[in-house]
């Protein structure tokens, strides 16, 4: 376990985190677009993409919450060695990582304050699959509309309704990621069995 904790970080942090950040930034700036990230080999159950996001954005200044299966000794040791990120519960975290079912309900996370809406959590959602199809996205960063396979619809609609407060999401799957900021409007795809009206 020790050896695993020490390995799997960025071999060239300055360059690899610069590349990973550009992918994350492009994803956040253009909701619904998919981007590759590489360079991180975190222990299971973390995906390589989630590992790269954590290495790129987290450090001793950003308390993080590990949800469900992500909250294991191997991940603790790996994050402690490579980021020094302090682990906390969901209500005080800046970042959270885990599967959608482990991360929910969203009411547990800080959504910022009206004077400081930026003081809100970013959730790194590990997804079994991630494609640019499914739920319809509109809003800043999107020319007409975009599509993204989201784990559900209603939670993102109520999150958007909090704007400018709210949570931001980075979806990870293998070595790919996409993002959904609070500014994005989410609708169920046309022909969905359970119709969720646009919010």
């Amino acid at each position: 376990m020790q050896a695993q904790a020490l390995s799997g970080g960025f071999a060239d942090p300055a360059t690899q985190s610069a590349h990973a950040f550009r992918s994350i930034m492009e994803a956040m700036a253009r909701p619904g677009t998919l981007h590759g990230v590489s360079g991180a080999l975190p222990p299971a159950p973390l995906s390589r993409a989630a590992g790269a996001v954590l290495l790129t954005l987290c450090d001793t200044e950003t308390p993080a919450y590990l949800a469900g299966g992500a909250n294991c000794d191997a991940v603790h040791a790996w994050l402690a060695f490579h980021t020094g990120v302090p682990l906390v519960g969901p209500s005080h975290c800046r970042f959270a990582v885990g599967s959608w079912s482990a991360l929910t309900p969203l009411s547990a996370y800080p959504i910022g304050t009206s004077e400081y809406p930026d003081r809100s959590a970013t959730l790194i959602v590990e997804c079994p699959e991630l494609t640019d199809s499914g739920e319809i996205l509109t809003g800043p960063g999107i020319r007409n509309n975009a599509a993204l396979s989201l784990p559900e619809v209603a939670a993102f609609q109520s999150n958007h309704a909090l704007f400018p407060l709210g949570l931001d999401f980075i979806f990870t799957c293998g070595d790919r990621l996409a993002a959904l900021p609070r500014s994005t409007k989410v609708c169920a795809p046309m022909g969905a069995t359970e119709v969720t009206p646009c919010m």
Partner: peptide, 10 residues
């Protein structure tokens, strides 16, 4: 970078 991401989100 964290500030940039929050800026893009809001």
């Amino acid at each position: 970078r964290r500030a940039i991401l929050k800026g893009l989100a809001i």
